[in-house]
Structure formats: C-alpha cells, structure tokens
Amino acid sequence: MSPCDHPEQATRRALARRVDPRVAVVCVLAFVTVQAATPIEEWPRFVAYAGLLLIAVIASRVSLVWLLKRLALALPFVIAVAMSTLLVRPSADSAVRLPGTDLMVSGPLLILLASVAAKATLSIVALSLPVALWDFPVLVRALQALRIPRLFVMLIAFMWRYVYVLGDEARRMVQARDARSPRGRLVRRVLVVGSMAGSLFVRGYERAERVGQAMVARGYDGRLRLLVPLRRFRAADAAAVLVVAGALCAMRLA
C-alpha cells in the first residue's frame, strides 16, 4: 500500500551511486526503449541485454527479493498470454509444435509469450534501478535538469508529497470500513467505496486550496523555483554513458 516502497539501505553504498542520477535515468530509459524495439526473434541479443543489465543490478546492490516483488506486476499478463497460447486453436498455417510435447499451438502467440516475458522482465528490472538508488526528490531534480516541462516537474513534486497524506486518509477510511465488517451486496460495497473516493476528493480539494494559500503567503506567483544542485560531470558519468551507449550500439549492429 505504500506509495513508494523503498529497498534496504544496501544501495546507499552501491558503486552505481557514483553515476550522476541524470545520466542513470537517461541510460535506463534508452536501454528499455532499445530492448523493447528489438524483435524477439533475435533472441541472442536479449541474452546480451540481460548480461548488461545483470552488471548494473550487481553494481546497484539491489536485493533479489525486492526485484522479484516488482516483477510480479507483469505476471498477470504473462499468465494471460500463456493461457491464450494453450487454449486458442491455431490456424493451419501458424501452428507449431510446442517443444517437448505433441501439442500444436499458435506460433505468433508463442512468440508473443516470449516477447512479454523477456521484454517486461528487462524493462521492470531496469526501471527499478534508479528508484532503488536515489530518493525521489533527487530523481525529480534529475527530471528537471533533463528539461521535462516545468508543469510536469511541479505536478510530480506535489503528487509525491501529497500521495502520502491522501494515502494515509484512504488507508484510515478502509480501516474504518473493515472495522465495521462490510457485509452486504456487491452493489452496496461498490457505492461505499465510491463515497469514500468522493470524500477523499473533497478533502483533497479543500487541502489543495489551503496549500495554494500557504504558497501564495510565501510569495508564490506561479513559477516554481528550485535550487538544482547541478554537479559537474565526472569520469564515472562519462564511463557510464560510454559503456551503455557502446553496448547498446554493439548489440544492435552485431
């Protein structure tokens, strides 16, 4: 239920933290996009991607359990495609024999299964690394330095701050409901959750009005000014860029 599940402190001492967060974010997004754009039929490339990612995971000292929990997000999709593969009767020209069995399954669906399993795994693991290494405010600064539109940076900052506050309120409402043991028809239960969402909205709206007043009281005029501690690029940053860019190029050209 926590808005931002944070892994243990081990990542604080990780080698990967020497890289500038801006560089890390760009590298991760480039890696995710390149691997997603690679046809799954060229499977040796994915072995290479996984190798590259493994090095990054080790350098980040992320715990395996934490990564596995995040990987569970893709599980419903993998299961759904796997079930489709088993259940859908393949058309005559697309049927292939499932390796090791006598079962005839659809070739395109089998390829889709491999695609979602491989690409979702690589993507989720890669996307998890910056979050594991740095606190969210640092990443917001990195996004700001990367010229993401200012409005987005502001909205992300506010959202992160108030997700905790509203999340706590939501949790208290769920507890209050569960404490009174919600028996009753489904329709009733759905409407109850609806009115909880309505209350959450009204409270959130009124909170936003007060926050706006508090900001105006301190001279806010619509422009969010943040001190961005822009560190100079260091050798480690250049090395990270070169390694990732070089590796990605080599894998695409090979």
Partner: peptide, 10 residues
C-alpha cells in the same frame, strides 16, 4: 496543519 504549510518534497 503542517501538511498544508509544508508542500515541497524536502
């Protein structure tokens, strides 16, 4: 309410 007064990430 400090949740109104303190609105920034840090």
């Amino acid at each position: 309410n400090p949740d109104d007064q303190l609105f920034m990430p840090t």
